[in-house]
Amino acid sequence: MNAVVLDHITKTYDAGKVLAVDDVSLQVAAGELFGLIGPDGAGKTSIFRILTTLLLPDKGHAAVNGLDCVKDYKAIRRSVGYMPGRFSLYQDLTVAENLHFFATLFGTTIEANYSLIKDIYEQIKPFSGRRAGKLSGGMKQKLALCCALVHKPEVLFLDEPTTGVDAVSRKEFWEMLKTLKQQGITIVVSTPYMDEAVLCERIALIQDGRIMSVDTPAKVVAAFPVKLYAVKAADIYRLLTSLRGDNSISSCYAFGEYVHVTFRDEAAHDLQAWQQTLAAQGHEQVEVKIISPSIEDSFIRLMQEKQNAQP
């Protein structure tokens, strides 16, 4: 059975003026680690709020563990854990008090499912007497995760848990998710960081309320329809400017130390000849190569295709 089902879900705000979620359908299998990948305003939070029964969809049907998100809201609330994007614990309660409070809400105790949170909680235990509002960002995040897990949920919803978190803490957080997944919990996580997409089993790329692609990260990048070139030179901005003036180029954008390029007619392009052309244009230390696309390349490509398809 699918742990999460969205069936043609649409959600608008402001009496229909703002279309937040536009006819979204997807399924998440039980035990899966599933990622919603997209920028702010893509509709990720609305989807989470519909699935956690905090928001009613305008149209469509949503279910969690076979329970209807509208009719069975009470049963869903007992069986899911939700970590909202904004820190939502009680700032003036201590770490231990917050955890105890959430355990009590769900009619359980911290001890009952301690094995589930043990690894994470032990890291913040030295600060158990500290008020949540006085914790660092990384520790707040760990406490919020513990509170979302204290009643041993079957499905865990994490809305941008790593936003604004540094690269080291982000890596640690994903390690924690892997461990939780091994314990059989279904995890739906959203992130604006495209590099985190590869850490999920399957992902949905979402933009302006619409799903652009749902698949495994490997298949998403394998679906990239053309060859992708990476080029760099000593002055990257000058390189970018001159590539933009080249009519044979279909798209070019900065990507780390390289510029990623796709051609309108790639058969006509020979790497060596291109490198010489660029050098002749006065670019120094030119390097060109063919590369495999990343999720971010795929996301950009899908966005561009969508924009081009619009009138």
């Binding site: 997209g38 920028p39 604006p192 933009q207 970018l240 900065a254 971010e296 996301f299 950009i300």
Partner: peptide
Amino acid sequence: EPTGGVDPITRRQFWDMIYEAAA
């Protein structure tokens, strides 16, 4: 952190403006 949460195309357009200002 000027580009947090912004889509990848807008993020790059933003960096274009940074390059232009620096130039």
